[in-house]
Design a binder for these strands. Structure first.
Lengths: 148, 148
DNA sequence: AATAAATAGTTGCATAATGCAAATAAAAGA
DNA sequence: TCTTTTATTTGCATTATGCAACTATTTATT
């Protein structure tokens, strides 16, 4: 194992920059954290506050306030959950869905541009590698796991 | 291209968690940002403030204050640069070097554990993939590039 | 059923991080 | 010399963070 950390560091740094470039849609400017929250709500199935906060590995109190902001921005909706009245179910408003889709499209466009510098074979290999890496981090006992 | 963004998102999320776990050494508790600053100073060659701030893609004013904190913590040294008296050269103190090395070792240990779930061949493939990905992000015109 | 313990979410508060605008100081260009 | 650019710092206002404590509700224990 050579300078593995350097490899990962460079990669995450660049991917982080890509992510940061993708937080503005129309007149709406999101923080990176807010864009991640929208992303998670979008892909989880009727999640509660706690579940999303866990998925993002974010303190619930900070999360609660971020959600308040996003609700005020009319991007997120909080619905009381009848089966357990302590719980709120989070969902995206139509505007939230739109913004999230736009961001998703932009990130994918950027990623597509990056992959355009590879051959089809290389692309497949890279994606398979990332999939494998994700599985191994999932398996890992000592790190990398959020709580969901 | 299927759900490529999801793949990358999962990966960066997990790697981010790994990184966050690695900010405490002995009595010293670092923020993630501070640990990245130490990392960059360590690998750059006698960098100026501006150069490190650019490499991390961080606003120079925030960076300036982070450096003040790290100097107070006795992890970083600021040396006036005689050839240009506006400039300060940054370096790690012995204690800073120690902390940085410890963090490096811990991250590598975690990564090693992750890679232990792969065959030798898979490991090589994954590392080669990341190298390739980094090169392609380097080439990319529209994103992912810090300024250094 | 009654009470205790656990859970979901919010708020108070203090601290840290952020970034724009403006300042200072030094170097480079005209 | 005078103007412009560059490196770094500070003022200030805003936002983010997380612990402790709170409310409300559910679950467990007796």
């Amino acid at each position: 194992m050579e300078n593995v950390r350097e490899l990962f560091h460079t990669m995450t740094k660049r991917l982080g920059l890509l992510d940061r470039n993708c937080c503005a849609v129309g007149g709406i400017e999101l923080s990176l954290v807010q864009s991640h929250i929208l992303y998670e709500i979008d892909r989880m199935n009727e999640p509660s506050m706690q579940q999303v906060a866990d998925a993002i590995a974010m303190d619930i109190t900070t999360f609660s306030r971020q959600i308040q902001t996003l609700v005020k921005m009319n991007l997120v909706k909080k619905t009381p959950y009848p089966q357990d009245r302590r719980v709120y179910i989070l969902s995206l408003t139509p505007e939230g869905k739109y913004v999230t889709a736009k961001i998703d499209a932009e990130v994918n466009e950027y990623l597509g541009e990056v992959f355009s510098h590879m051959s089809e074979f290389e692309r497949e290999t890279v994606l398979r590698s990332i999939r494998l890496l994700n599985e191994c981090m999932e398996k890992s006992s000592i790190c990398c796991k959020p709580l969901f």
